[in-house]
Design a protein around this nucleic acid. Structure first.
Lengths: 132, 132
DNA sequence: CTAAAACCTGACGTCGACGTCAGAGGCAAG
DNA sequence: CTTGCCTCTGACGTCGACGTCAGGTTTTAG
């Protein structure tokens, strides 16, 4: 398939696909006229790439991992890096969970303030202030 | 305290603290000569700010929330935004968990490849390739 | 054959959270 | 008074993952 179809099927922009190639994350064939032609499994690869981006990996890091994923080839070094990235993701998740708790407590505090009718300072006039 | 001490006590840079003020996340007093002076609770506020950043909120969003946090003042609108942000954090966490699973499966695949001795292609020569 | 749609290669723009540098005060100690 | 550290205000630089525009070629539909 050509780049437009791959974009449509994966939901990523054409520009992004070209960028991925630039970063050596994808290596489509080229027709005689220079147009990119992707195989079916490119769809899965793009999905994987997006997930790794979502995990916070950089394009450089992903580029280092793609040979492993694509060829099934792996070295102990690569495994170490994969594990390290997983740990980083775990840490990020923990961070987010902590932040979420904090957000919740802020919400709880604010909610109870509202419920107990405790309006601080300048809410003395009952006018519904629509905007500036 | 002055900005250097606050930086030391929170672990964020002096530049970042000035930036936070620029974004209306902090509002320190000023001495006659123009130097910033922070109260003790600024430490907690900075910690909160960092957590909200870690949750993926933008400085603009955080700026909208700080009055609520600081003054304990809350409007239904603010509560909606807080809830929306929490949902966003939840979505991000789910994304990360999914990405983590994917990473794990990649690691598993690669590991079993190594364990079963299945070395693909160019690993024919047993020379320990040290570098480029 | 022709017009529209899709594709190509540069190359510059963006956005957010700061880093960094320059030049100029301010503040406590000796 | 001077030394040395801290602080101030601009203002430009950075980095990553693209967006966007320009100007040209290729493919497809009618």
């Amino acid at each position: 398939m050509r780049i437009g179809e791959l974009a449509a099927r994966t939901g990523v922009s054409v520009r992004a696909l070209r960028y991925y190639e630039e970063q050596a994350l994808l290596a489509p064939e080229r027709s005689a006229s220079g147009q990119r032609h992707y195989r079916e499994d490119a769809v899965d690869q793009v999905v994987l790439i997006r997930q790794l981006y979502a995990a916070g990996l950089s394009s450089k890091t992903i580029a280092g991992l793609m040979p492993c994923v694509v060829d099934g080839d792996a070295t102990p070094e690569l495994l170490r890096r994969l594990a390290a990235e997983r740990d980083r993701v775990d840490a990020r998740i923990a961070e987010l969970l902590s932040a979420r708790e904090r957000l919740d407590s802020v919400i709880d505090g604010a909610t109870s303030n509202l419920l107990t009718g405790r309006r601080c300072r300048n809410r003395t006039a009952p006018e519904p202030n629509a905007g500036p």
